[in-house]
Structures are given as structure tokens and as C-alpha cells.
């Protein structure tokens, strides 16, 4: 059973079997506007919570996507690098960015649930 968490930095984290899939929220892609560039991390890269894992650039601006928790990158979604607009059209599904093996599942307790995230974006 997968559980989905959110961060104040507008990421979603879907956890299943000790592996987290990370993407940006629909609200985030809407705020960024049309994406033209996605730079993904390397598979095997070790990320600490708060590390800039991904760079997304829209026509107007660049933004970092931060690692929401500690872990090792196990897979990246190359489709978003070749077609950044996929993140706009399917931010919470096919537009996922990377998967990571969790180093410390207890960190998940500090993340938001959907209701908490919705309260933030209003």
C-alpha cells in the first residue's frame, strides 16, 4: 500500500516498499509555467534531505527541487528530461522525477499529508 506525502517546497513523495518516488505538485508546475529543461540526478547518487536534486527551468526562471529525505537514487525519469512539458501535463503521475531508496523511514513523519499540504497552498 503506497502512502503519499508532501513537502512545503511543493514536492510529493509516494512511498512503497522502502522506495520513494518524488515529483513536484500540480500546484508547483502551475506556478512555474511551461518547463523547458529538467536536469535529473545520477542513479546511485546519495542525497541528504535538503540537497538540490533536480533543476527545473521554465521559460522565465530556474528552480531547484530538493531531496525531501535522505536516500540513494535508484531510478530517474528520463522522459522528463527529453520532454519537460510532461511535468506540466502530468506532474503527479507520469511526470515523476526520481526514485530513491529511503535511508531512514522515520524522516517521513516530518512530512505533510495531503490535507496539510492543501492547507498551505490554500
Amino acid at each position: 500500500m503506497a502512502t503519499t506525502y508532501f513537502t512545503e517546497d511543493h514536492e510529493w513523495i509516494r512511498v512503497e516498499g522502502g522506495v520513494a518516488t518524488v515529483g513536484i505538485t500540480d500546484h508547483a508546475q502551475d506556478q512555474l509555467g511551461d518547463l523547458v529543461f529538467v536536469q535529473l540526478p545520477d542513479v546511485g547518487q546519495k542525497l541528504a534531505k535538503g540537497d538540490a536534486a533536480v533543476v527545473v527551468e521554465s521559460v522565465k526562471a530556474a528552480s531547484d527541487v530538493y531531496a525531501p529525505i535522505d536516500g540513494e537514487v535508484t531510478e530517474v525519469n528520463e522522459a522528463t528530461a527529453s520532454d519537460p512539458a510532461l511535468v506540466n501535463s502530468a506532474a503527479s503521475s507520469d511526470g515523476w522525477l526520481w526514485k530513491m531508496k529511503l535511508a531512514d523511514e522515520s524522516q517521513l513523519a516530518n512530512l505533510l499529508d495531503e490535507a496539510g499540504y492543501k492547507a498551505i497552498i490554500g
Binding site: 509555467g33 511551461d34 522565465k60
Partner: peptide, 11 residues
């Protein structure tokens, strides 16, 4: 800055 069409389509 943008309308609902979005910057890419507006351009």
C-alpha cells in the same frame, strides 16, 4: 505576466 494560455503558447 501570463494569461491562462501560458507563456509558451502565448509566444
Amino acid at each position: 505576466i501570463t494569461y491562462p494560455l501560458g507563456v509558451m503558447k502565448e509566444h
